[in-house]
Nucleic acid binder design. Structure first.
Length: 111
DNA sequence: TCAGTGACTGACC
DNA sequence: GGGTCAGCCACTG
């Protein structure tokens, strides 16, 4: 697979995350069949800057930590966006993550 | 070409 | 239960 396909698929998955839901880099990587490369998903997010159609704030690490908030041009933007969708944040971490977790592997058709 | 870096994760101690 | 370490792959200088 070439990298453009990979990037496109990452973006495609992220775009399908419903409001009020979140997923993890690892979950996306796993869905795309490269579960050992969660870093690439983070990389894809990093490259998604400027694309407003990608709700990157709904992608967090596996424990619900907002590790990428600094890339939103501010430190509070990401938290605000999530709280705006009804997700509670405490100390840069999502509360009741299991309640909001959206697993692409369960919600999307198999590739 | 090589080495360093990163929005990560799982395994070990 | 928290701290470390080693894989993972693309990009940059």
């Amino acid at each position: 697979m070439n990298k453009n396909d990979f990037f496109d698929k990452v973006y495609d998955v992220v775009r399908q995350i419903p409001e009020g839901k979140v997923t993890s880099y690892g979950a996306i990587a796993n869905y795309l069949g490269v579960k050992k490369s969660a870093r690439l998903v983070g990389w894809a997010m990093n490259a998604s800057h400027g694309d407003n159609s990608i709700p990157a704030h709904r992608v967090v690490n596996r424990v619900g930590l907002l590790t990428g908030k600094h890339h939103f041009g501010g430190t509070k933007i990401m938290q605000q966006l999530l709280e705006n969708e009804g997700i509670l944040i405490k100390e840069n971490k999502i509360l009741n993550l299991e309640l909001y977790f959206w697993d692409p592997q369960n919600e999307l058709p198999v590739l």
